[in-house]
């Protein structure tokens, strides 16, 4: 570890760690969990399906293309691809969440 990564203050040494959280939109035709289009700049409410609007009885179905893209990205980054992945659902009330639901994958 070179000296550049360490900062000294009040007799203590601190190591600098920088993380990058990268949000990269998958260039898919449809959304991640619904068949709605994702065309940038469309009029509001023109790309909202019954699933997106969380109508009763609607169920999310994952977009297979997005899965493939995620796997390719992982391979490109030399990452390990898991054969089995699990969803968690996170709930909170917010104006941008019709289903009050957030899927973590």
């Amino acid at each position: 570890m070179t000296k550049d990564y360490l900062i000294e203050r009040n007799g203590k040494k601190y190591e600098v760690v920088i993380g990058l959280e990268v949000h990269a939109q998958v260039l898919s035709e449809s959304k991640l969990f619904s068949t709605s289009p994702t065309k940038f700049g469309s009029e509001p409410n023109t790309q909202v399906s019954l699933v997106d609007a969380a109508f009763p009885g609607m169920l999310p179905v994952i977009n297979e293309f997005c899965i493939k893209q995620a796997i390719k990205t992982g391979i490109g980054l030399n990452a390990k691809i898991n054969n089995k992945s699990i969803f968690d659902r996170k709930n909170y009330f917010y104006a941008d969440l019709p289903q009050v639901l957030f899927y973590l994958f």
Binding site: A54, F55, R89, P98, Q99
Partner: peptide, 13 residues
Amino acid sequence: ASSNLARYDGVKY
């Protein structure tokens, strides 16, 4: 149920 019924908020229907 607490997750599934969270959608009933009076906004959409």
